[in-house]
């Protein structure tokens, strides 16, 4: 069963492992026939399409749960919503075919709203966006296991526009390659000549996959 759930802004500082544990406990409370792994230390068979960073909220996050027997999406939804905390409610559930591509591998990009708390900084960035995007390459620093690594994020930015004091961005997010909001902001701050990266509130609106024609679309619709 695949389900779409929210990680509300109130919970944005809760890390992925804690969210994972909260979902596991909710599944145990729900009374749904969840499957456990075999072995010495059995755990619930639960995966997430993409881990959401500590500090970010998520509007349509995606999980997948294996069940012992068939349960209708409606029944799943109502059992889980009774068991999930108010800040982590589900909006959709859908049965997946037996043979489906791993959710994690299907994610191609993500859609973010990045709200700046400083109005002046937001205006300055909005004014420079066209010039920023006109660059042929944008080198950003990315933290990896082996230190800081340079990445050209320009090809990873699919769309980027200003919406009031927020930025709306669709950026590549795959297991191999990604432009995270933090990298984008660092690059924007450097481009605008800010001394510090401005404070923001990041909401991940959707996880996107590619449809048969190769166009990006919300993962849960594919």
């Amino acid at each position: 069963m695949m389900a779409v759930f929210e990680k509300s802004p109130r919970l944005r500082h809760i890390g992925h492992l804690d969210i994972q544990r909260a979902v596991q406990r909710a599944l145990r409370r729900s009374g749904l026939p969840v499957s456990y792994s075999k072995g010495f230390n059995p755990h619930i068979l639960l995966t997430f399409a993409s881990a959401l960073s500590t500090g970010y909220a998520g509007r349509r996050e995606i999980m997948e749960v294996q069940l012992e027997r068939e349960v209708s999406p409606e029944a799943f939804l109502s059992a889980m919503n009774a068991a999930m905390p108010p800040d982590m409610q589900l909006s959709e559930a859908k049965m997946l075919p037996d043979q489906h591509i791993a959710l994690m591998a299907a994610v191609q990009a993500a859609d973010y709203t990045i709200t700046l708390t400083d109005d002046a900084a937001a205006a300055a960035i909005a004014a420079k966006l066209p010039a920023f995007l006109a660059q042929e390459s944008i080198i950003a620093l990315r933290r990896t296991k082996s230190g800081m690594k340079e990445t050209d994020i320009r090809p990873l930015i699919h769309t980027l526009k200003a919406e009031g004091n927020a930025l709306r961005a669709v950026m590549t997010l795959t297991e191999r390659l990604a432009c995270k909001p933090g990298m984008l902001l660092d690059a924007l701050a450097a481009f605008c000549g800010f001394e510090e990266t401005p404070r923001v509130m990041v909401v991940r609106n959707a996880l996107l996959g590619a449809d048969t024609a190769g166009a990006l679309a919300p993962l849960e619709t594919l």
Binding site: S8, R10, H13, I14, R25, R29, G55, M84
Partner: peptide, 18 residues
């Protein structure tokens, strides 16, 4: 909300637990 961005363990102060 602004403070929670700066402190070490924000989940101590968020509330909203089950």
């Amino acid at each position: 909300e602004a403070m929670l961005e700066k402190v070490q363990k924000a989940p101590r102060y968020t509330g909203g637990e089950m």
